[in-house]
Design a protein around this nucleic acid. Structure first.
Lengths: 250, 250
DNA sequence: TATACTTATGTGGTCTGACCACACGTAAAT
DNA sequence: ATTTACGTGTGGTCAGACCACATAAGTATA
């Protein structure tokens, strides 16, 4: 009989309805970190939509890092609300840069703003836990490290400072900004004339920043951070980066 | 014949493959703002996946605000890469707060950091275009405005300052932070004893901030901004907000 | 009884095919 | 020349099927 299953010209799409439903459940506390979402088939029936529409909504939450999906059976299977979200910001900012919505220079500028605030706050917080930052600096002293490996640790070091503030929004945003330009940062490192020297300078700057923080000198930590970030991006000329435009035939 | 269509135990999911493909096209410049993506059916065949998998990837890009989809035919139909992305950050941060991944206090703190940087930079940039900010303040003088209407304009005012810096990353992040707590801000306004007085104070602060910016006094603009934001959040006790926990049965 | 094996169940992941509403282009009718 | 009718291609949605996987329950075995 091929009944009129398809919805009438709703303004709200089916997948938006599902997403809105889940968001409301989250906002009202009906759904908490660690909880399992109803199965896709169940949710589809409950909301009166097809399973594919449910999946599209689930997919968005998944990509944003708000839930984790797993096949199989048992308590760990299904879609679970992630307790400590992360990653979504990175994906978003990375795509924004790729789609030319965000300029690399703006990403760097914003990173500088946040990083300055981070070191300022840490300098004013004597009880800050900077153990991880110290450990990362120690690891980065390993001369065997390739530029890429060093830069990855470099990113972790900066992120560890942000995390030390205890502000997860700040840390997540910093992580996102970094990952958005990570590709360009690593790519640019290949064009540095004397990597060994640059690397030593970077490490020296890292230590001096950490020192200023522990001295409680917010202004000094601030200025050193600015010099550190601006210096590297000036040296790599990342701010005038041109797209790696493989001018695809098509 | 029910052949073995289903993919072997790939580590990469089909929709991730599609998303990765599109991201690469964006990163290499093969896909630029304003361009149309291939049709879902075409893309499915090209990448050797089902249309539903293509749709899940498209859906993520759609939800993140990177593309706009439209039915029908002609040049404006299909999935088009959005030229000036926006909204994705808002959705992400709103969901993060709803899912208890981001604390409201951290959102406020981060907003303060960014807003301070905004006014500082504007004060140091005499050529900044602040017309829209002025206009919004004028509109907000309308005594007919409800608290909600006023607060919406308030948000637009702050956003206009961020946009005046020309840093889209900054503006988008600010917009996201704001929308993440907008619900709470508006909800909290109802509990303010004397809204009329509070409103006058807010407007006075807005004007004094703008004045400091145009005087080129970065420090003054900074301190006034801090007082403005902290003052409001202290008054509404937003930092100690409890969830609107409709303790849904189930 | 305790252990190993087998089977049933339920989950997300995917594919296929179908239909709808919509917007456009084109051809026919006026 | 204008209006109308129809074909075409787009995303949006649904339904049903199958797979790989992980667990739980049941069964056979030592």
């Amino acid at each position: 009989m091929t009944a009129d299953n398809q919805h009438p010209p709703h303004g709200e799409k089916a997948w938006e309805l599902v997403l809105g439903h889940v968001e409301k459940q989250l906002a009202t506390g009906a759904l908490n970190p660690g909880d399992r979402l109803p199965g896709e088939r169940i949710l589809a029936v409950e909301l009166g939509v097809g399973r594919s529409s449910v999946r599209e909504a689930i997919r968005v939450l998944d990509a944003l890092g708000l839930i984790r999906t797993q096949t199989g059976s048992g308590p760990s299977a299904g879609a679970i609300v992630v307790s400590r979200p992360s990653g979504g910001m990175s994906m978003l900012m990375r795509l924004q840069v790729a789609a030319q919505g965000f300029a690399v220079t703006d990403v760097v500028k914003t990173r500088l703003i946040l990083e300055s605030a981070v070191v300022r706050e840490l300098a004013e917080t004597p009880s800050a836990h900077l153990d991880e930052s110290h450990e990362l600096l120690a690891v980065m002293d390993n001369p065997e490290l390739s530029p890429t490996e060093f830069l990855v640790l470099d990113a972790q070091y900066h992120l560890s400072l942000a995390q030390a503030t205890g502000n997860e929004v700040l840390a997540a945003t910093m992580a996102g900004l970094r990952s958005a330009i990570e590709h360009y940062v690593i790519e640019a490192s290949a064009s540095i004339p004397n990597w060994g020297a640059t690397r030593l300078i970077l490490q020296e700057q890292h230590r001096s920043i950490l020192q200023a923080i522990q001295l409680g000198d917010a202004v000094l930590a601030n200025s050193r951070t600015a010099a550190h970030i601006e210096g590297y991006y000036t040296e790599t000329r990342l701010h005038e980066h041109s797209r790696t435009n493989t001018p695809t035939h098509n």
